[in-house]
Design a protein around this nucleic acid. Sequence first.
DNA 1: TCTGGGGTCCTAGGACCC
DNA 2: TCTGGGGTCCTAGGACCC
Length: 433
Amino acid sequence: MRSTASILHLDLDAFFAAVEQRDKPSLRGKPVIVGGTGGRGVVSTASYEARRYGVGSAMSTREARARCPHAAFLSGRFHAYRDTSKRVMEVLRDLSPLVEPLSLDEAFVDLAAAGLPDLEVATVTAVGERLRERVHEVTGGLTATVGIASSKFLAKVASELDKPDGMTVVAPGTELELLRPMTVHVIPGVGPATAERLRRAGIHTIADLERTSEEELVRLLGQAHGQGLWQLARAQDARPVVAEREAKSISVEGTYDSDLTDRRLMEGLLTRQAREVGTRMRKNGISGRTVTIKVRLHDFTTLSRSSTLSSPTDDGGTIGRVARSLLADLDTTGGVRLLGVGVSGLADWVQEDLFGEAEEDEEHEVVLPEPPRRTWPPGADVVHDEMGPGWVWGSGAGVVTVRFETAETPPGPVRSFRTDDPALHRFEPPADD
DNA sequence: TCTGGGGTCCTAGGACCC
DNA sequence: TCTGGGGTCCTAGGACCC
């Protein structure tokens, strides 16, 4: 926690619905609900007109229709949302170089990096009001709510207090008197499960939380969460505003209107999702080693299976093969409502490759597999090098992964080569390999 | 016919290495 | 021959956020 109110949190009001109302005047002043419109859809954003009927985020679209049948139900135009969001983030970066977007409609801004004459409450209040006006201008009429305080936690709590189209500045020194009467639900990170555990321990407000020992909270909630809440209850929060955060995973998933039972169909869907993941990875210039599938059964139990490759990939075909083999281990006879594929353990291609390859090569000289077992799948691209024959298991961004199948070490070592030509029939190991 | 999609972070157990 | 602790990586699941 700082001694000045220098962290600003901005939240665009009912963002997706507001963009729709902006772009379609006939929707203005009317209930608008953006979200999944299929049989298993949920509400993403409800306009304030729709909220009056009790419609809220994460509610099933079915229930939203029951509560507000005359609302406009829209499935969302994410290009428009991204576009508008970009304009808002630019306004924030005009104010300070230190901007941390949390989603399309939310961001932290570090006012201490903004070069203001001072960080007095009157000054930051004027900055916040001016910012809200600028956002209104560049978005074509959208409103934002702002919170300004001495930490991320307090700024975020503050921005919840005067929604929509409002602003709250928490004067330094008044944080605890603001927090103490609030319920634990206002703390980001306290969801239904944590709130229930706290409730059973007789902890309802932040004042209750403040009276509870750190040991007790760790016992109730685990080390990280318990210690974190103990600190937040005292308004202790020194987390910095971080401008650049690198993605840790990329995934695609889908929920189907009726449960899937056909394995071939599931494999086909995973294959398509894997291709999409690969495309997005190459677009972002990243690759990853761990492939994970997610399977939600008819009864909503959710399973995941993952496999870590010896070298990173951004190739949809490789991701798809791994995904399908992971699915093979699961019993899906009861039906599947959701399938997903993701890649984590992300790395920048070139760096990872340069380091990874040199090490692997030395190991492979020791474990030279003899004799080779020719078990590659029909139609596979077969290559030869000093290790004997292998088959091409994946490729992407100029790197080909070859799997050497042997009797001793099935499924065999995997090796990556850099080549300008991923058309593997013409594959040749590089001279310096 | 309750319960999306894209993420992040944490925990716990087992393997493996020193 | 038996015992041991720490660190890292991997896997599976869960809670949470917007």
